[in-house]
Every structure is written in structure tokens, then in C-alpha cells.
Amino acid sequence: MNSKFQIGAILRNRLALAGLAITVVVILAITLGAALMPHSEEDMDFVNLLMPPSLEHPFGTDAFGRDVLTRVLIGGRMSLMISLSAIALASVVGTMMGSLSAYHGGWTDAVLMRFSDLLFAFPSFVLALFLMVVLGFGTPNIILAIALVYLPIFARIARNMTMLIKEEPYVQAARLMGRRPLSIIVGEIIPNFSAPLLVQASIGVAFGIILEAGLSFIGLGVQPPTPSLGSIMADGREYFSRGPWVLTFSGLAISFALLGLNLLGDGIRDLTDPRLRERAAP
């Protein structure tokens, strides 16, 4: 179960490896790649409006003559950052909420879980839309909205896992030592379901990117001129007939990133699922 084993196992699992490779490529591209680009995402070139892909502009240029590749990379960075922050927030708060709720039981559990049911009751995109309208536009609020949409999922996982693990003898032994509940939850319980959390987080980041893109696409998310994958696509849609590459490449960029994250998530799940692991090594 230690980390050394898991990294080694990821390298041996082809699916997980592909996911990891794609994710690494994406991260390198949006950090290092974006910095190396000769253009700036806001440099307008009014001579070369809506130019098709060329050596100079591999993804072409948009209606303002901006380099689409640069904008996709910078926008990808924005989208990923928003999604990562949101999932980080959701996983920490959701996990604590679910674990505390399950550990203490009683009416704490009832209140927290009904709250999470309430969030669950709405389709995620509708909920995010609603939250954006309530919270107002702006990057911090997108993060908050995505986090709130995803929070109940983490709370559910944490609650179910804590329910199981809290009856384990080693948790009872920790109680008998006189340790405080919070210390037991953080020290003994949560580390033992970090694998499903990790799986959910990697899928969650992909989901967050879609949500952010959707919100920005309809103009409720990241505001122009700051690029995000959603807002680039929204721009691209307007002149799709004259410059289809803008929408196509930004859409492909999202698909590529999601493919990587989902493969990675699946791979981690396969590797940490004891039923699948046992088959590999009895």
C-alpha cells in the first residue's frame, strides 16, 4: 500500500501509463509550452485575422488575429487552475464533512447529509448556473461554484468509507488510547481511503474543466479578454463558418486533457481495487 508500490504499479499498467503521459504532456504544454510561445495571448494582429493553421500559427488565428494555440495553452492553464482549486477545496471540505458526519453519527450526520442531498438533488450544471447567478461573476466565484457542485460527491465517499473503517480494530485501538476524534479521523481513517479519493479527484478535475468551459461558454464564467477554454470556444462559435479551427482546436484540447485525466483515474482505480489487484498477485 505504500507509495513506492503504487508508482511502480502505475508504470506497469498500460492504461494508467497512457493517462499519466497525456496528463504530463498537458501540464508541460500549459506551463512550459505557454511560456515558450513567441506570441502573447492578447497580441492582436489585425493583418492576419482568422488565418487558417500555418507554421507561424499552428492552430490558426482568431477574429482579432490572436494566436489560437497560445490562447488555448493560456486558457487551458486558466481552466485547469480553476478546476484544480475547486476540486482541492471540494475534496478537503467534503472529505472532512463526510468523515466527521459518519464518525459522530446522530443528528450531526443527519444535518450534514441532508445538506449534501440538497446539493445532489439538482443537475450539476443547473446548480452551477444557479450558484453563479447568486454569487456573481468572477474567477473566485467559479471556483466556489464548481467546488459546491462537487462537494457532496466527496462527502458521500468519505462518509461511506468512514462508516466501514471506523469499525476496524485499529481505529478502536486508537480510541482506547484516548485519542481525540479529529486526530483519529485525520491520522487513521482518511489515509486508508485516499485511493478512492484520488480516483474521484482526478475524474473531478476533468469534470471541473467541463463545468468551467460550459459556464464560460455561455458567458457566466471567466470574462473576456482573459482566455479560458470555454470562452475561446464561445468566441470560436461566432465565426465557426469562416474559421472552424478556433472551435475545433479548443474543443480538441479539452477532449485531450479529459482523456488523460479519465484514463489516469481509471488506472488508479484498477490498481487500488483489491479485487483486481489480487488477480494480479495472489
Binding site: P169, Y170, A173, R175, L176, E188, P191, N192
Partner: peptide, 19 residues
Amino acid sequence: FRRDLQMIFQDPAASFNPR
């Protein structure tokens, strides 16, 4: 009182945090 009251469980493998 915790100090005075300790327990040993049936399944030794489950009595310890694997990590």
C-alpha cells in the same frame, strides 16, 4: 479511564493501520 482499559482484537492483521 482509557489508559486503564485496553483491548486485544481477534484479527491481528486488522488491528494495525496498514500504513
